[in-house]
Amino acid sequence: MSKKKIFVAVTNDVSTDYRVHKICTYLISKNFDVVVYGRVLSNTISVERPYKIVRKKHFFNNNFLFYAEFNIRLFLYLIVRRYNYILSNDLDTLPSCFFASKIKSTNLVYDSHELFSEGPELQGRKFVQSFWRKLEDFFLPKIKNSYTVSQSIVEFYDKKYQNKMGLIRNVPLKKDVLNIEEVSFPTTNRTILYQGVLNPGRGIKPMIKALKLIDNLDLIIIGYGKVENELREFVVKEDMVERVHFIGRIARDKLFNYTQKATLGMVLEEPLGLSFRYSLPNKLFDYIHAEIPIIAGNLPEITRIVKNYKVGVLVNDYNPKTIANAISNLLNNKVLLSEIKENQQKAKDVLCWEIEREKLDYYFK
């Protein structure tokens, strides 16, 4: 019997979208034939995967022209091929996937990585935000099989569209490291880690200011993004070059080596729009699996995990003094630090991809 074919569409960088990779790998283990369709980006790195990757170079890579070009080319690609399932990742791939699935009578599954129309980059841009909201209004009530990354987003969409999305959180595998190697940070001080995309609203600037109020603690930044140069300039301006260390981009299969070296992990996303408010960042789970206590902002989904599993401490605002006090109190409380690490050992057996991925069986039969 021939394998069922699944087509996966994504505008993110295929080489770094770990959610897409985990899902595709699981589907292959269930005997599906998987093809991932993405784009060539300037910083794309070559990767070896157990599934086929199709990458298209685009004339446009930003703004409306990119989305239009991507969806037109994706539709033309799909319309001359046959698959059993089309998996659309995020709203920006959905138009072409939706119409192709209708014309070809193909099962459509939608994975919403975020509350797309409420993203921080859309705040204050009324026309652009209105455009994405209209797309959600048109498509989401019509899709029978969909899931997303946090309970708050499930509830938001269900209240608006009564579409009963599923919940599949972006948690790591228990053994989320392929290349084990000895690594080190460029400091002998204790460290607090930020890992992830360097975009606005991640709480990095308040953390840099908070460091001035704490002795013997440096900030490690792993990742890249649009505000990296701005952050580097800010570090110089604040005279914190000796205390803030930019490690750059680390491949996912090596990242855990670095994560587990840190003393603490920071998850200080700021509420820049509902997408951030309802987000459940990957790094929160990475820190739990690495057993490093967490300093977190008091947003609903993050709070739910930190409180339920008792894996860190929450700050109620982003004032550097508030952050510094929370960190100092935690570092000086050895009993609490020990309890948090014990709780993380238990939590990572529950908050893991080995359990979460089984929910995919409902969507791909």
Rank of each mutant, 00 (worst) to 15 (best):
L65G: 02
L108Y: 03
Y18T: 15
Q260W: 01
I23C: 04
F64V: 06
L87P: 14
R277E: 10
K226Q: 09
M266R: 04
C352Y: 10
K310F: 03
T303N: 15
F66T: 03
F66V: 11
V14L: 14
E291I: 12
V35D: 07
Y67S: 03
L268W: 05
K164T: 06
S338T: 07
F285H: 04
F246S: 08
V54Y: 05
G201K: 04
K52A: 13
L330P: 02
Y161E: 02
K164N: 09
L219N: 12
I302K: 00
Y83G: 11
F156Y: 06
V34H: 12
F99M: 03
G38F: 07
Q195W: 09
N84W: 00
F64Q: 02
S15P: 05
E339H: 07
T191C: 06
F127A: 09
N31M: 09
D111G: 03
E354P: 14
N89F: 02
I143S: 07
I214T: 04
D176I: 15
L217G: 15
V350Q: 01
V10P: 00
S46L: 01
N189I: 06
T106S: 13
S96V: 03
L74H: 12
V20L: 06
L27H: 00
G225W: 12
K283H: 03
N62M: 06
S152T: 11
F185A: 08
N189A: 13
Y318S: 12
P281W: 02
A296K: 06
I208E: 13
E114V: 09
V10L: 08
E291P: 08
K5R: 15
P50Y: 09
F127P: 05
D13F: 03
D137G: 15
I86G: 04
S184P: 01
E118P: 11
N12T: 02
D218T: 13
I292A: 06
F131R: 00
L274D: 05
K212C: 04
Q129G: 14
N145K: 14
S184L: 08
K174G: 07
P320I: 06
I214F: 05
Y110L: 13
V236M: 09
A210C: 11
D90L: 10
F234K: 08
K365Q: 15
N298M: 05
N333R: 12
L274A: 05
S184V: 12
Y161N: 03
F276Y: 14
V183Q: 10
Y161L: 08
M165E: 02
Q344Y: 14
K126F: 02
R73K: 09
A326C: 06
W353Y: 08
S2E: 13
F276K: 03
S112A: 15
Y83H: 11
D317Y: 00
M165L: 14
S150M: 11
L78C: 11
F234D: 05
I143F: 06
E342D: 10
K52G: 09
Y37D: 11
L122C: 07
V20Y: 02
